[in-house]
Design a protein around this nucleic acid. Structure first.
Length: 426
RNA sequence: GGGAGCGUAGCUCAGUGGCAGAGCACCGCGCUGUGGCCGCGGUGGUCGCGGGUUCAAAUCCCGUCGCUCCUCCCA
């Protein structure tokens, strides 16, 4: 049997893990600043949750979802996105009963059966927020502000980002809008690509998304969703834009932005990077005022966004390339000389760790010179434990940055943790 | 889903029919108990996998798996 990872599923190795940890910490801190609390739904849900919530005809559900039967034949799915899961949890646990706005965030792996390439894996990671319970357009703007602020904190230059905005109206508006699109595209069907001819029957809004050159003329002259909004939706969109202006958030209106999931209503937006190549979408989101009710809860509006972590890691890696961080991982490396000293060294090593001094030892049977070399790479200090020192009741501490050496009494290892720790300043 | 390129040592890659290589990394020695520089030596490979052509295949052909890029879709 050949052991290798499954296509599209990759290991995040220790080398890369600190970057992920930093990214995760930055995301959590930012979400907390905006009053969001973490929710951790399971990775596996009933497949029906997504076919109903996200939409049976969406690419993500009908082409890309991992679906499998469990031992009882129950149709399960690895989550392709998390909004449906969060809303399911919201309904299932009656979070609405608290009569307040629920501000929830999540972070974790998602699964889509796609062709892998740079910045796109089959198991990938998303972070996102969901604000459930308010129709306030200020909340739409806040969610966009949050997304934008997070990118700033991660050091993405504003000029490198592109915020696209649109409103696709409420369910009622879309009935009329779809009809208008159908009337527009039907006489031009022969100009459209094969995919779009199919979309014309299934979901004409999808045509707006098409990038095929042959479809562009018909798309450019197509009716705009913003011209088919009811009074309430038009007012809402106007308010969102005013709030964005007040927050000095720059955006471009994109009448072809319709997003890939069926649950969106009214505000939809996307943030892309100009510096990422083909997979340039950083995050996307919008309002979904019908989803809670659709999944069995009371009519409750919602707004949120989700972003991909792989792409942020790519951006952060590019940034890191310019600077070098040479802080050693450990405070101390214990280097014993001889078998007798080694026994004592193991004891001292345990004491260091209990005092909060990160420390490790040579386990590979390397020569003293080699052990010192490794210590020089991994740690700030080398603790040399040899027969000569032990005879005096001492060990030697070498500062590997300066080369200075001093002696340390063995009694010091029995002192208070803070005292011992102070002997190894980083 | 469609198109193109690439898989050779842990890493980066050279080798394009004739003994599988270099640099870096790793280990040892010079320097018997002290790292970073230098020098010398060494370990390490089913040449992604399977089949075919050939006296002979890392090299040519077919298939397959994986990665990368474009397209598509998206995060």
């Amino acid at each position: 049997m050949k052991v290798e990872s499954v296509r599209g599923m990759r290991d995040i190795l220790p080398e890369e893990a600190p970057l992920w940890q930093r990214l995760e910490a930055e995301i959590r801190a930012t979400f907390a600043l905006y009053g969001y609390r973490e929710i951790r739904p399971p990775l596996v849900e009933l497949a029906a949750l997504f076919s109903r919530g996200v939409g049976e005809t969406t690419d993500v559900v009908h082409k890309e979802m991992y679906v499998f039967p469990d031992k009882k034949g129950l149709k399960l799915a690895l989550r392709p996105e998390a909004t449906a899961s969060v809303v399911r949890a919201y309904v299932e646990h009656g979070l609405y009963a608290k009569g307040d706005l629920a501000k929830l965030y999540y972070m974790g792996p998602m699964f889509r059966y796609e062709k892998p390439q740079k910045g796109r894996q089959r198991q990938f990671h998303q972070y996102g927020v969901e604000a459930l319970g308010s129709l306030d357009p200020a909340l739409d703007a806040e969610v966009i502000d949050l997304a934008s602020f997070l990118m700033e904190r991660l050091g993405l230059r504003r000029e490198g980002l592109l915020l696209r905005l649109n409103s696709i109206g409420c369910a009622g508006d879309r009935v009329g809008y779809r009809e208008a699109l159908r009337q527009h595209f039907l006489p031009r069907a022969s100009e459209l690509c094969a995919d779009c001819q199919r979309r014309l029957a299934e979901n004409p809004m999808r045509i707006l998304d098409c990038k095929q050159p042959q479809c562009q003329p018909a798309i450019r002259s197509a009716p705009k969703s913003v011209d088919h909004l009811c009074d309430a939706c038009r007012h809402h969109f106007q308010q969102v834009r005013e709030h964005l202006d007040a927050l000095a958030l720059r955006y471009g209106l994109d009448h072809t932005l319709v997003r890939g999931f069926d649950y969106y209503t009214r505000t939809v937006f996307e943030l892309a990077s100009r510096e990422l190549g083909a997979q340039d979408a950083l995050l996307g989101g919008g309002r979904y005022d019908d989803l809670v009710e659709l999944l069995g809860g009371p009519a409750t509006p919602g707004v949120g966004f989700a972003g991909g972590m792989e792409r942020l890691v790519l951006v952060l890696q590019a940034q890191r390339g310019e600077q070098t961080d040479e802080t050693p991982e450990l405070a101390c490396c214990v280097v014993p000389i001889g078998d007798e000293a080694r026994k004592k060294a193991i004891e001292l090593l345990a004491r260091l760790r209990r005092a909060g001094v990160s420390a490790d030892m040579e386990y590979m049977g390397r020569s003293l010179r080699k052990a010192m070399q490794v210590a020089g790479r991994r740690a700030r200090y080398a603790l040399i434990v040899g027969p000569e020192e032990l005879e005096q009741g001492q060990v030697k501490v070498k500062d590997l940055a300066t080369g200075e050496q001093r002696l340390l009494e063995l009694q010091e290892f029995s002192a208070a943790p803070e005292a011992l720790r102070s002997r190894f300043p980083r």
